[in-house]
C-alpha cells in the first residue's frame, strides 16, 4: 500500500525528516509515536502533499505509484485521507458542502455518478449516527467554533464518509474525553478492512487499547528509531522516550 524509502524532508531549509523508511501493507494498522517535534506531523503532511514541506530526497510509493508526483487533491481522490492534528476553521463553508464536494470529487475521479442531495444526506446521516454527532453540525461552518474534541470527531466523520484506502490520523485522540475516545476508536475500527491501511500518530497507549496496531514505530529526531509490536507502546508508556533515543544514537555510532 505505502512504501516510504530514505525520505528526507526540510521546512524552510531546515531538515526535519532525515531518512524515513516505512512500509505499510493493505489491511494493516501502524502506530507512530515519538517526542514532540520529532517530525510526526511533518511526515503526515508530506504524505498528504502539503507544499510547505520540501522533499529533498527519497521516495514514496502508494499502491505502486509515485505518490510525491501527485497534487494533494489527486492524492485525496486516490484514497489518501489525513485527519489533521489541528483542523483549520473555514468560516462560511458549511460542513455539508465540504463533505459533498469531497465525496463527489472522489466519485467523479473513479468514473462513478455523483450523489444527489438526497442520497448524499442518507449516507451522511448514517455516519453521523456512528460518530454520535448531531445533524445541525452539518450546517455549521467547517470546524468554526467547534471545541477541540468536536473538531477531532469531525475529522473522523469525514474519514468514515470518504472511506479512504490509506488513512493517516495525526493525534486524533489528543484532547478527547474518555467517551469521545471510544467513539472515535469505534469509527477507526469500523474502517479496518483487508483493503485499507491506517497510520495512527499518537502519544498515548490508551487509543491503542481500543485500536490495536500491527506495528508500532518510534520517530525520533527525524528517523524511525525503533519499531516493534503493540507491546512497544506499553513499554514507551512506562519508560518514556529517553532510552529509545539513547539506543538509536548508540546504534548509529556502532554502525558508523
Amino acid at each position: 500500500m505505502l512504501e516510504i524509502s530514505k525520505l528526507h524532508v526540510s521546512v524552510d531549509d531546515k531538515p526535519i525528516l532525515r531518512g524515513i523508511d516505512l512500509a505499510i501493507g493493505a489491511g494493516e494498522v501502524h502506530a507512530i509515536m515519538g517526542p514532540n517535534g520529532s517530525g510526526k506531523s511533518t511526515l503526515a503532511h508530506v504524505l498528504a502533499g502539503h507544499d510547505h514541506y520540501t522533499v529533498t530526497s527519497g521516495e514514496v510509493r502508494y499502491r505502486g505509484r509515485d505518490l510525491l508526483a501527485l497534487s494533494p487533491e489527486e492524492r485525496a481522490r486516490e484514497g489518501i485521507f489525513l485527519a489533521f492534528q489541528y483542523p483549520v476553521e473555514i468560516p462560511g463553508v458549511a460542513n455539508i458542502y465540504l463533505l459533498k464536494a469531497a465525496v463527489n470529487a472522489q466519485r467523479k475521479h473513479r468514473g462513478e455518478p455523483e450523489l444527489d442531495a438526497v442520497d448524499f444526506l442518507a449516507l451522511v446521516k448514517d455516519k453521523l449516527q456512528l460518530m454520535g454527532m448531531s445533524q445541525d453540525l452539518l450546517y455549521r461552518s467547517v470546524n468554526e467554533g467547534f471545541s477541540g474534541g468536536e473538531k477531532k470527531r469531525n475529522e473522523i466523520l469525514q474519514m468514515v464518509v470518504l472511506e479512504p484506502k490509506l488513512a493517516i490520523l495525526d493525534e486524533t485522540d489528543s484532547g478527547l474525553d474518555i467517551d469521545a475516545l471510544k467513539v472515535v476508536a469505534g469509527g477507526i475500527n469500523a474502517m479496518r478492512s483487508p483493503e485499507r491501511a491506517i497510520l495512527l500518530v499518537t502519544h498515548y497507549q490508551r487509543l491503542l487499547d481500543y485500536v490495536v496496531p500491527d506495528r508500532v514505530h518510534v520517530l525520533a529526531q527525524g528517523r524511525i528509531a525503533l519499531s516493534g509490536g503493540r507491546e512497544l507502546a506499553q513499554e514507551l508508556e512506562m519508560r518514556g522516550y529517553g532510552w529509545v533515543e539513547a539506543e538509536a544514537a548508540n546504534r548509529r555510532k556502532g554502525g558508523a
Binding site: 494533494p72 487533491e73 489533521f84 473555514i90 470518504l162
Partner: peptide, 21 residues
C-alpha cells in the same frame, strides 16, 4: 490545503473560500 486534502481542486478551493468570504 485543507480543502485540497479532501479532494477539492485548487481553483475550486480558492473560489469556494472567496465565495465564503
Amino acid at each position: 490545503f485543507y480543502l485540497r486534502s479532501r479532494g477539492v481542486d485548487d481553483a475550486s478551493a480558492r473560489a469556494l473560500l472567496t465565495f465564503a468570504f
